[in-house]
Design a protein around this nucleic acid. Sequence first.
DNA 1: ACCATCTGGTTTAGTGCTAAACTCTAGTTT
DNA 2: AAACTAGAGTTTAGCACTAAACCAGATGGT
Lengths: 161, 161
Amino acid sequence: METVELSPRKERGTERGARRAAVVVWMRLARVYHKIDRATAEHLRAHDLSVAQFDVLAQVGAREGITQKELAAALLVTKGNVCQLLDRMEARGLVERRPARFGRGNHLYLTEAGRGLRNSAVPAQEDLVAGRFAALSPAEQQQLLDLLRKLDRSLDRPTEE
Amino acid sequence: METVELSPRKERGTERGARRAAVVVWMRLARVYHKIDRATAEHLRAHDLSVAQFDVLAQVGAREGITQKELAAALLVTKGNVCQLLDRMEARGLVERRPARFGRGNHLYLTEAGRGLRNSAVPAQEDLVAGRFAALSPAEQQQLLDLLRKLDRSLDRPTEE
DNA sequence: ACCATCTGGTTTAGTGCTAAACTCTAGTTT
DNA sequence: AAACTAGAGTTTAGCACTAAACCAGATGGT
């Protein structure tokens, strides 16, 4: 295995420190993500839903008529993944694919069952999340949101390292 | 950075408002996590490593002699998952399972190949993460870390919902 | 009209992950 | 010592997810 090209910067002492600091933040963020994700997965089992399926239900419910491509983009997953997810959920009668009348692409809609499940699962899910964040005051949550937003936006801009 | 309202004024301080607010923070956190996770996965392919394998390599390298159970706990995954992961990595000659001399459990060690790979992959990975967090100043990263730490610690405390 | 291309969507192979059942053995009980 | 128990590790079934190849209908240029 070859050595990988490191970024062409000079190894100044402060850079090393900055690198460490970022890694620590990232590890903590990943930890928090995992814990809450696990907790929601466990909770959603009461509705016979996986987290992925819940996400589909929530997104499609919020934006009916969305296409598979758009859904994949919204969920940050591949179209292949969305396709398989929809296969299962359609077979279970939760969502419906309708081919576009003009142009290409399938439009997605919730069935009655899907809407019903969504209406019960979404509030429960929100309650759970609210509970997990309850340790932070509203002001702290706002602060956290601000930081995450700034970070998130910077991630869209093509590599500015 | 300017503060953005979380929700319409009329919901401020209400249960509904708090619930919404937490959900918004959570969605943003999940988004950030996904993006960085994807970026690291892509980057690690240069070393023929998945994120999970990288994590194993990093953990075992940092704490040689760790048991599988401890590793699973450190990575927040099931022991079954660790077992499979180790199967592949052992087959590839990166790690080694050694049955405990006394008591039960396997102790884990990196092979020479594993150590070499770790030594090249870890710094590259840290550079990438540092780059992704570069949009935040050191002070902001500290702030983010503080909030995540507080949140993380609260998640360990048995359900206070 | 014809062909080339583009682009949603589908399929497939391979990893990651969980839950749950199972194995094996160390340490304990009787 | 024989049997029981508990705990680390393994196995299995099934969903999630990606990358990459594939398919088919739309679009567009000549």
